[in-house]
């Protein structure tokens, strides 16, 4: 299987131009477990893209409208090819999976579902997620599942930029003014209980030794990197334990339903319609 590596005229990111359409056209079919793993990665990307997109026209600077929009667009791209690939296992399209699954069928973690809050809280979430995703994709490029490896290769280049963006802002807010340091610290404190869920080897990951990256193996490098940057920004790593129910099931999230209500409203009002 191969993906054409051409540049897209409308994109600023440097990644290979793998699209959801190319994943679909490649003819690769995910097996059930690989598909369920792709949903975990894809749902995180989709929920975060949905959250970040709400910043467009509301950012503190015009350059940030562009930057946050670009990050949201990258994540939406990742969601699209991950959901497309997952859907091959069940003859479902990316839109079937995004718009016609119910709350308990999504596998996103609670961290990406959190409300944006102020810019400090959004940057705190970006810092944690982008560092985690960078750890994931830099290993997933070696997956024995060729499609997942190709997707990871593309996503990695973009997530490296998201990580850089988050770190640059963490330093600016942490070392900027008293107020900015206070707000970023508050964002970290509020979100920290949701971090643990990132590292849980939920089903079917334990059965996917060479295909998936076991999140539990990423706890140490992710936390070390986060600690280093938070300290460099003059802030402290929150001393908050992970909250109960870290299983990506949606049974312990109130935000997911609201995100889906908004995202799915139009598509569900016109089932079967083409857009």
């Amino acid at each position: 299987m191969s993906f054409a590596s051409h540049d897209s005229a409308t994109r600023q990111s440097q990644g290979e131009a793998i699209t959801a359409e190319e994943v679909a056209a490649s003819g690769a079919v995910a097996d059930e477990d690989a598909a369920r793993y792709a949903l975990i990665l894809g749902d995180d990307a989709l929920m975060l893209a949905q959250r970040l997109s709400a910043w467009i026209s509301r950012a503190p600077e015009l350059e940030e409208d562009v930057a946050l929009g670009n990050i949201a667009l990258d994540l939406l791209g990742h969601a699209r090819f991950l959901l497309t690939y997952a859907g091959t296992a069940w003859h479902r399209t990316e839109d079937d999976l995004a718009y016609f699954r119910d709350e308990e069928e999504f596998r996103s973690c609670r961290l990406v579902e959190q409300e944006n809050g102020d810019f400090g809280r959004t940057i705190a979430r970006q810092l944690i997620v982008s560092i985690f995703q960078h750890e994931v994709y830099s290993r997933l490029v070696h997956s024995t599942d060729e499609t997942l490896a190709a997707i990871a290769d593309k996503a990695l280049k973009e997530v490296a930029y998201h990580q850089d963006h988050a770190i640059q802002w963490t330093l600016r807010l942490g070392l900027g003014t008293e107020e900015s340091a206070r707000r970023l610290q508050a964002g970290l404190d509020e979100l920290w209980a949701s971090v643990e869920e990132l590292f849980i080897d939920v089903d079917p990951i334990p059965r996917l030794a060479s295909v998936a990256v076991a999140p539990s193996t990423l706890r140490e490098p992710t936390m070390a990197r986060l600690g280093e940057i938070i300290e460099q920004a003059g802030l402290r790593v929150p001393e908050v334990g992970g909250s109960f129910g870290a299983d990506r099931s949606g049974r312990f999230s109130e935000h997911r339903g609201h995100i889906l209500a908004e995202m799915q409203v139009l598509a569900r009002r016109h089932p079967g319609a083409t857009w």
Binding site: T10, I56, G69, L73, L76, G77, R80, Y99, L266
Partner: peptide, 16 residues
């Protein structure tokens, strides 16, 4: 609320 992920991506790119 864009009704498909492709439309959402196009709209996001446009507003950007």
């Amino acid at each position: 609320r864009a009704p498909s992920l492709k439309r959402k991506a196009i709209l996001m790119a446009k507003v950007q």
